[in-house]
Computed example of a mutant assay.
Amino acid sequence: MEQLMMGSLLSALATGIGALPILFFRQVSHHWRDILLAFTAGIMMAASTFSLIPQAMKQDSLIIVCLGVMTGTVLLTLLESVIPHIDLEHTRVNISMDTQSILILSAITLHNIPEGLSVGVSYSSEQGGLGGLIAFAIGLQNVPEGFLVALFLINQRVSRWKAFLLATLTGSVEIVAAIVGFYLTSVVEGLVPYGLSFAAGAMLFIVYKELIPESHGDGHERSATFSFIIGLLVMICLITWFA
């Protein structure tokens, strides 16, 4: 339980780490942002395909794994349809802070719930190092997200410190979701492999629907591609050494 709390806390606080530079400067180059997003995509892709799914298949049937992956994918698809997706980096709509900022914060917070569940389910697995690896992968994904949320809030005339705090708070829901995921899979027998495959489906959705398109949106496809592959190899090395 102590490891779960530490891993989920660090994963959630990564959003605040990403928002931290906003206290000192207001922008980052598209090039470096795309490289970071692609690197994160590689990390999460490897975590899903080389860690979560194989571990789920060791514990249960292929049918359960497929159902879990599809459930995670469908859930995030439903969230996308219910919560309008707004491109934080390229939005040009001039809406008041009270409406657009609340929408953005709500969307980011809700999207963090499956990520927290992924961390909690991973810590309940029999594979000792899996929880830490997934928390690390989710935390990396939260870094650019935290920066973009804080940057958006500043552009809506929110103070730097308030933007930093609000962006950090959007990640705090992951701690609660991680605890729920951990206890659910611990109490309900046979839920762990389903939960692991669910987490894989949710992460793969984020990679393909969000991170890869975002990293290829500003003409830096080649460097983003290399960054994706490097991220994937880094995570494979971590899985081999620590899992």
Rank of each mutant, 00 (worst) to 15 (best):
R33Q: 14
S172C: 14
G132K: 07
D60L: 00
N155I: 08
L204M: 14
Y208L: 11
I108T: 13
N142M: 02
V158N: 06
H216E: 11
G7L: 00
T73P: 00
A150C: 10
V69L: 03
H216M: 08
A178L: 06
L148F: 15
P21W: 13
I179C: 07
A47R: 01
G132I: 10
G7R: 03
L151Y: 14
T40H: 02
P84D: 10
P213S: 12
S197Y: 03
L148Y: 11
G116R: 03
L238W: 08
A150H: 11
I179Y: 13
I108F: 08
L79S: 01
L105K: 09
I154V: 15
R157I: 03
L88G: 09
S172V: 15
V121E: 02
L165V: 12
L10N: 11
F152Q: 08
I86S: 01
L76C: 04
Q3S: 14
T15I: 06
V187L: 13
Y183S: 10
S81L: 04
A38P: 11
F164P: 04
V82E: 01
I102P: 00
R157T: 10
D218M: 09
L13S: 01
G116D: 06
G131C: 00
M6C: 01
L184A: 15
I108K: 08
L196V: 00
M44K: 03
F182D: 06
W32P: 08
W241L: 14
H90V: 05
K209C: 02
L10H: 11
G120L: 05
I206F: 06
V176Q: 11
Q59L: 08
N155K: 14
Q127H: 13
G116Y: 09
L103G: 14
F25V: 10
Y123D: 00
F205K: 02
Y123G: 04
I113A: 06
S11W: 09
V158R: 10
I154C: 13
E214F: 14
T225P: 06
T240H: 11
G195I: 01
F39W: 13
S11G: 14
V188W: 09
V149T: 15
I17K: 00
A47F: 00
L78Y: 02
S48Q: 10
L20N: 02
S122D: 01
R222P: 03
V143E: 01
I179E: 12
I212S: 05
N142T: 08
I35T: 12
D218W: 09
F182A: 02
F205C: 01
